[in-house]
């Protein structure tokens, strides 16, 4: 399963990048700077959905005591954090030519930044707590608390934003986008998802091997792979 996702992500990302950067028509208002869309939007979407996946895994882990679910949170959190950072970074780079500024206290940017902090906190819990089981469960609780609060944060930031800032900048997508423009985006999105799946599976394999390092099957497996 792992190589499939690996190859799929490589293929999709290459196709998407080339298509998006070289062949898709440039936006008539923004010119070529618009092309960062092909990295920004997939990463932003993924940043959110990884968080939701982590929360689901947290519930699964806490309710059905599945160790694999905790392992998922452990390995997905750093990836989610990097993707969120990528989304923020590309957003800033995109914002500079489009809005003339690196950063605005826009509702969506602000809540993404907050989400980035929550990711960091979850990673921090894993790093700081020595007992693996405790670390996993506390991080799971943090995930659930984070998800319960996320809509409130979103709403409050949105509301705060409309209060403080007259709508000079609207980050709404162009309502009608040509097919040849969003298709590479879709390819990129799928590519990002399979890249995520690849990374998660790879990291989970390492995690499981580490966790079960005392059992016999791990020893046999590693001997077969000639690591030992």
């Amino acid at each position: 399963m792992l190589p499939w996702f690996g190859w799929a992500s490589l293929l999709l990302l290459v196709v998407g990048t080339v298509w998006g950067l070289a062949f898709a028509p440039s936006d008539f208002r923004q010119g070529n700077s618009f092309r960062i869309f092909y990295i920004h939007v997939p990463s932003a979407i993924l940043a959110q959905s990884v968080f939701m996946m982590m929360a689901v895994a947290a519930v699964v882990g806490l309710v059905w005591r599945m160790k694999l679910a905790f392992m998922f949170i452990r390995v997905a959190a750093p990836i989610g954090a990097s993707i969120t950072f990528l989304a923020l970074f590309t957003g800033a780079v995109w914002g500079k030519p489009t809005w003339g500024t690196w950063w605005v206290w826009d509702a969506r940017l602000t809540s993404t930044l907050i989400q980035f902090f929550i990711y960091l906190a979850i990673i921090g819990l894993f790093e700081a707590i020595e007992n693996m089981e405790t670390a996993a469960r506390t991080a799971a609780v943090a995930c659930i608390v984070g998800v319960v609060n996320l809509p409130i944060i979103k709403f409050s930031v949105n509301w705060w934003n409309t209060l403080h800032q007259p709508a000079t900048f609207k980050l709404t997508e162009p309502p009608s986008m040509a097919t040849e423009m969003w298709l590479p985006g879709l390819v990129m999105l799928l590519g990002f998802y399979s890249l995520f799946a690849t990374l998660v599976l790879m990291r989970m394999r390492n995690g499981i091997l580490l966790q079960e390092r005392r059992t016999n099957w791990v020893r046999e497996y590693l001997e077969k792979q000639r690591v030992l």
Binding site: I114, Q115, F117, I118, L120, A121, G124, L125, A128, A142, V145, G146, N149, I152, I153, F155, S156, V157
Partner: peptide
Amino acid sequence: VVLSLLVVPLYIP
């Protein structure tokens, strides 16, 4: 540090 990271985002609303 972990505590602030965890709590501050939740304090925002």
